[in-house]
């Protein structure tokens, strides 16, 4: 993405790009389906290797098999989903790149991230019980993760309680950024407070010896969950686009339905009460225009208002 300064071409390019991405993600798309199939296959292979092929650990026994789920889930949630949401929120707030694309992507990323982080906590607890002796311990990594989950549940709450799209985007973008800047601080506070959790052993140095097939399965799990995340993200984004579209459309449809309904009622009335026909004739001609019910909602609405004294009150429902 290139953004030029000054002449506003940057904004146009962003709009074009996001338009293309919207069409790409919402239409029938075999790449997305392929991504879904690939993630399912990768997870299937991860499960097969993790449960049947890899050997049990010398110390932890079969519990080590959680290694092929838990770190991958945590990594995707903490290092992909939430940073992506923060980045998209910042891009939305920056005027040049402001686009509903970033707002929806941030929201989708947070929601999928919440699923991943909740699973991280569940798998972590299941692992913690036999290894540490407790489901939960007030450890830095656990507490930070739990607080992050709560912060982003707050993000979802603020998003759900605002209906206006512009305000919703602004509020949630700011909420995401304000929460995100806190993460390093929470992390360092918690580390000083108390820590028990295993460090990221494999990343730290070469002294760790990990069995060949175990290393392969471990690496595969990251790829598998990353693919799953991307697939869920695109689908969540797709739902968001469709939902916004539906909201606009259902309003329009409701208005059109009401207009069509009122036209039928008026015709009924005209048949039943020929006396009032003379009074109404000028207005009904308005509503009988071929396109009246489709686009000219304002003119139809004013026509309906003119008609109201002669028509039963329930003819025009509360939607209008």
């Amino acid at each position: 993405m290139t953004i030029e300064n000054g002449n506003g071409r940057g904004e146009v390019m962003v709009t074009e790009m996001t338009g293309k991405l919207n069409r790409w993600s919402t239409g029938r798309n075999r790449w997305i389906n392929a991504l879904g199939v690939a993630s399912v296959l990768a997870i299937g292979l991860d499960v097969y290797l993790g449960l049947w092929v890899t050997p049990p650990d010398r110390v932890q026994g079969n519990l080590v098999r959680l290694l092929y789920i838990h770190p991958a889930l945590a990594t995707v949630a903490l290092y992909v989903a939430f940073p992506l949401a923060a980045l998209c929120s910042a891009l939305w707030l920056w005027r040049r790149t402001r686009s509903s694309f970033f707002d929806r992507l941030a929201a989708s990323s947070v929601e999928v991230g919440i699923v991943f982080i909740a699973l991280t906590i569940v798998t972590g607890s299941l692992w913690g019980r036999p290894v540490w002796g407790v489901y939960w311990t007030w450890d830095a990594t656990l507490t930070t993760t739990a607080l992050l989950l709560l912060e982003f549940l707050g993000y979802v709450a603020i998003r759900r309680s605002t209906t206006d799209p512009e305000r919703r985007a602004r509020r949630s973008a700011i909420a995401a950024l304000v929460a995100f800047v806190d993460v390093p601080l929470i992390q360092s506070t918690m580390v000083w407070w108390k820590t028990l959790h295993q460090k990221a052993t494999v990343l730290l140095g070469s002294s760790t010896d990990i069995h060949g097939i175990m290393a392969v399965t471990f690496a595969l799990s990251f790829l598998a969950f990353l693919l799953l995340f991307l697939w869920m993200l695109i689908n969540r984004y797709r739902i968001e686009v469709i939902k916004d579209d539906m909201q606009g459309r259902t309003m329009e449809d409701a208005i059109n339905n009401r207009i069509a309904e009122s036209k039928v009622r008026i015709e009924d009335l005209l048949v039943k009460a020929p006396v009032s026909a003379g009074v109404l004739s000028s207005s009904t001609e308005d509503t009988r225009e071929p396109n009246a019910g489709v686009v000219h909602t304002t003119s139809s609405r004013s026509a309906s208002t003119e008609l109201s004294p002669a028509v039963p009150a329930d003819t025009f429902g509360s939607d209008l």
């Binding site: 607080l147 707050g154 709450a157 603020i158 929460a179």
Partner: peptide, 23 residues
């Protein structure tokens, strides 16, 4: 400021603010 003007501000404020204030 973020929640001001929202209908659900009384319940949203603690949910948003308290986790952030934990350090």
């Amino acid at each position: 400021a973020l929640v001001s003007g929202m209908r659900l501000r009384e319940t949203l404020l603690p949910l948003l603010f308290l986790p952030v204030a934990s350090p």
